[in-house]
Every structure is written in structure tokens, then in C-alpha cells.
Simulated assay, not measured.
Amino acid sequence: KVKKNRKKCTAQKNNDLQSILANICSEEQIEEISKLIAESNTKEELHNSLAKVYKKQATDFYKLLRPRYLRLKGLQESENTCTADEDKTMTTQKAEKVVYHDVLSVKLDELLDGKCNKDELALIREAVIDATTKQQLYIRMVKEFKKEKGCDIYNKIKPEYVSLHKLASEIIK
């Protein structure tokens, strides 16, 4: 049973990595990056490991992984601690998180009038989850989408920031 639970956790982590890196990595690279995440203790260690293996591509990979590092690392840690009893709790928590995750995604998509693609929505969703202030959200939007588009996105979601952040905080719990 524990082995089966670890496979579920590993599959979830691999699905997350796949969705982040699918457009720029091969399956083998995604597996290698998964191992590098597991072996790293900090974002800096991950970046250094990526640089050793992937040289010039390392920075591109790291830019995509950095905002999601803690979540990916959390999945890795849960893989290492999955037990039969924990699995039931984790399954319940994941189900709750998925519901909030979907509600947050739907709300963001509505606010942005469906003008962002799936990958852009994922970046925005992560920014809303990570940002603890409107200013942090603004900075993240400008970094991710450049000034004009980042400001446009921020201005559309700013009026709903408090409710979005409340939804985001439910995802983290």
C-alpha cells in the first residue's frame, strides 16, 4: 500500500513538472529535473544543480521552476513520507485544494475575460497564491508579463485581490 501511495505522489509531482516544462523539455530531462529538485534543499542549490547539468538552458528552466519550487519540493517531501494513514488525509486535503484551485482559476479567467491562455493563467494563479500584498502581485505580474501586459492583468484582478487572496490562502492550508 505504501509503495502504491508513493507512486501516486510521484505521479502528481511528475504531472506538475510536466505541465511546467512540457514545451521546453524532453521526458528524460523532466525526470532528471525531478531528481535535482528532490536532492536540493534550497532554490539556489537547485539552480546550481541545473547549471551543472544543463549549462545554458539552466536559467530558462530555473525561471519556470523558481516560483513553484516550494510546492514542487513539498510534493517531493510528501512522496518520501507517504504512509497508509497519511494517504487518506493527503487525498482529502488534495481534493479540497483542487476544488479551491479550480475556483481560483475560474475566477481569474472570468476577471481576465478569457484573454489569457492556460499557461499564463497558471502563472497568474501562482502569483496570486504567492503574493501577500497587492504590491508583490503587481511586481510579479510586471516581471512575468512585461510592463504593459503585466499592468493590464494586474489592473483587472486588483479590485478582487482580497477575495482572490482569501481563496489562495485556502489552497495553501
Rank of each mutant, 00 (worst) to 15 (best):
39 E>G: 12
40 S>L: 07
40 S>V: 06
41 N>C: 07
42 T>L: 08
43 K>C: 03
43 K>Y: 04
44 E>M: 14
45 E>K: 07
45 E>D: 14
46 L>R: 03
48 N>R: 09
48 N>D: 07
48 N>T: 11
49 S>C: 09
49 S>E: 06
50 L>S: 03
50 L>M: 05
50 L>D: 03
51 A>T: 13
52 K>S: 15
54 Y>D: 11
54 Y>G: 08
54 Y>H: 15
54 Y>L: 13
55 K>T: 14
55 K>H: 10
57 Q>E: 15
58 A>T: 09
58 A>C: 10
58 A>G: 13
59 T>H: 09
59 T>F: 03
59 T>E: 10
60 D>Q: 13
61 F>C: 07
61 F>R: 02
62 Y>H: 10
62 Y>R: 10
62 Y>W: 02
63 K>D: 05
63 K>R: 13
63 K>F: 06
63 K>S: 12
64 L>S: 07
65 L>R: 05
65 L>T: 08
65 L>P: 11
65 L>D: 03
66 R>N: 12
67 P>G: 04
68 R>A: 02
69 Y>A: 03
69 Y>E: 07
69 Y>R: 08
71 R>V: 15
73 K>A: 09
73 K>Y: 10
73 K>M: 11
74 G>Q: 13
76 Q>H: 12
77 E>M: 14
77 E>P: 10
77 E>W: 05
78 S>C: 13
79 E>M: 15
80 N>K: 14
80 N>S: 12
81 T>D: 04
82 C>F: 06
83 T>D: 06
86 E>D: 08
86 E>H: 10
87 D>T: 14
87 D>A: 10
88 K>C: 04
88 K>F: 05
89 T>V: 11
89 T>P: 07
90 M>W: 03
91 T>K: 06
92 T>G: 03
92 T>W: 02
93 Q>L: 07
94 K>E: 06
95 A>R: 15
96 E>T: 15
96 E>M: 15
96 E>A: 11
97 K>R: 15
97 K>L: 06
98 V>F: 01
100 Y>V: 15
101 H>I: 12
101 H>M: 08
101 H>T: 12
102 D>E: 07
103 V>Y: 02
103 V>N: 07
104 L>S: 09
106 V>T: 11
107 K>Q: 07
108 L>N: 01
108 L>H: 01
109 D>L: 03
110 E>F: 04
110 E>S: 12
110 E>Y: 04
112 L>K: 12
112 L>F: 09
113 D>A: 15
114 G>W: 04
114 G>S: 10
115 K>A: 04
115 K>V: 06
116 C>S: 01
117 N>A: 09
117 N>G: 14
118 K>I: 13
118 K>N: 11
118 K>D: 05
119 D>S: 07
121 L>Y: 01
122 A>L: 02
123 L>W: 05
123 L>H: 06
123 L>I: 09
124 I>M: 05
124 I>H: 01
124 I>N: 00
125 R>G: 00
127 A>H: 01
128 V>R: 00
129 I>E: 01
